[in-house]
Simulated assay, not measured.
Amino acid sequence: MPTPHRVAVLALNGVYPFDLGIPARVLGAAGGRYSIVTCSVDGRAVRTNADFEISIENGPEALENAETVIVPAFETATLDRSHLATMAQALSKVAPGTRIVSICTGAFIVAAAGLLNGRRATTHWAAATLFRDWFPEVDLDPDVLFVDEGDVLTSAGAASGLDACLHLIRKDHGSEVANHAARVCVAPPWRDGGQAQYIEHHFPHTPQHASSEVREWARTRLREPLTLAMLAEHARVSPRTLSRLFDKEVGISPGRWLAQQRIDQARQLLESTDLAVEQIANQVGFQGSASLREHFGNTLGVSPNAYRRTFQGVQSQGSEITSLDLQAP
């Protein structure tokens, strides 16, 4: 077997312990094909976002010799731009041509280092607005699980770090090794759809918003064939005025908002009921199950039945693994 690929995992203050452990756990299941070390920006212990610190044995010099550098998620609630820039300086030690991978909010560090300018990337959907505000030069796609730009790979929240690391193994060593690593980790080797199926939509709804009342009215009538003209008539404004209000107060058009409400209600019914897809489609205002499946596929990247299996915990017969050979292929 060739010399193991050298991986350095950069632990930052506020790191999420789960995310920090993903590279060693997943890449370590690839049968010795990766050598993984964890380092900090100064070689000292780092505080986590939990109630403990983690002792780190390696400093930033580990970044100089790495062939892949992974930046796990860290707490961004109290982060400011100057602090971010200071942390991002650690990546200046990375040699040209080194592959950079981020998990969740680790993308903030990669972006602050200027490595995502003009490139497509992703991060946790809940951090997307802040990321866009700080890094408008990055083509952010918050709907996907990960984005592979060759020498830079960014992934979404938590479990998508598993997806990204399995993708690295598949890319470096093929599907057989990646599938074996997935089995060792008891994880799916590939997940259908993207991050969109996990996003919770919270549109602003306050009495100060002129569109609030008509939105509440429409939510109780989703199964009806609502149109822009009907919404505007109820709001007692012109369709053009209503469209401007939605754009200002909600950020999307009335038609897109209405479709999103129907999809969200369909998601709730798929999670909490055993109603057939056709029944759910009719209840939320889609013209039959084919229309619901089309909207689900376009918006979430999965079918209604696949979504139900994921979020309602429906298991297929014969899906259990009764034994597992933990030896590497």
Results as ranks from 00 to 15, higher is better:
residue 208 Q to T: 15
residue 150 G to D: 05
residue 83 H to N: 07
residue 64 E to M: 12
residue 248 K to Y: 13
residue 91 L to F: 09
residue 299 T to L: 07
residue 226 L to D: 08
residue 233 E to Q: 15
residue 287 Q to V: 14
residue 163 D to P: 02
residue 5 H to E: 10
residue 315 Q to Y: 08
residue 151 D to G: 02
residue 29 A to P: 00
residue 325 D to M: 03
residue 114 G to P: 00
residue 234 H to P: 01
residue 212 S to A: 15
residue 118 G to M: 07
residue 51 D to I: 06
residue 34 Y to R: 01
residue 231 L to V: 10
residue 211 S to Q: 04
residue 316 S to E: 14
residue 2 P to C: 05
residue 28 G to R: 02
residue 245 L to P: 00
residue 182 A to Q: 06
residue 275 L to E: 11
residue 237 V to L: 03
residue 104 C to W: 06
residue 131 F to Y: 12
residue 123 T to P: 02
residue 290 A to R: 03
residue 234 H to Y: 15
residue 77 A to R: 08
residue 147 V to Y: 00
residue 253 S to T: 15
residue 38 T to W: 06
residue 64 E to V: 14
residue 90 A to H: 07
residue 274 D to W: 00
residue 167 H to T: 13
residue 35 S to Y: 06
residue 130 L to G: 04
residue 101 V to R: 02
residue 150 G to T: 08
residue 316 S to A: 15
residue 14 G to H: 05
residue 222 L to S: 00
residue 272 S to D: 13
residue 248 K to E: 15
residue 56 I to M: 05
residue 31 G to W: 11
residue 241 T to N: 08
residue 310 T to I: 13
residue 90 A to G: 06
residue 39 C to L: 09
residue 87 M to W: 11
residue 294 E to N: 07
residue 222 L to D: 02
residue 224 E to R: 06
residue 102 S to F: 10
residue 289 S to W: 11
residue 243 S to F: 02
residue 53 E to H: 04
residue 96 P to L: 12
residue 248 K to D: 14
residue 158 A to K: 01
residue 298 N to G: 10
residue 239 P to H: 12
residue 8 A to M: 10
residue 227 T to E: 10
residue 108 F to G: 01
residue 225 P to T: 13
residue 327 Q to E: 13
residue 320 E to A: 14
residue 48 T to V: 10
residue 328 A to F: 07
residue 35 S to I: 05
residue 40 S to Q: 07
residue 6 R to Q: 15
residue 295 H to R: 12
residue 302 V to C: 01
residue 272 S to Y: 09
residue 122 T to F: 10
residue 254 P to F: 13
residue 22 I to W: 04
residue 313 G to P: 01
residue 162 L to N: 02
residue 327 Q to H: 11
residue 144 V to D: 00
residue 195 Q to T: 11
residue 286 F to W: 08
residue 16 Y to C: 07
residue 97 G to S: 08
residue 158 A to L: 11
residue 160 S to M: 13
residue 40 S to T: 08
residue 198 Y to V: 07
residue 276 A to E: 15
residue 83 H to F: 05
residue 321 I to Q: 03
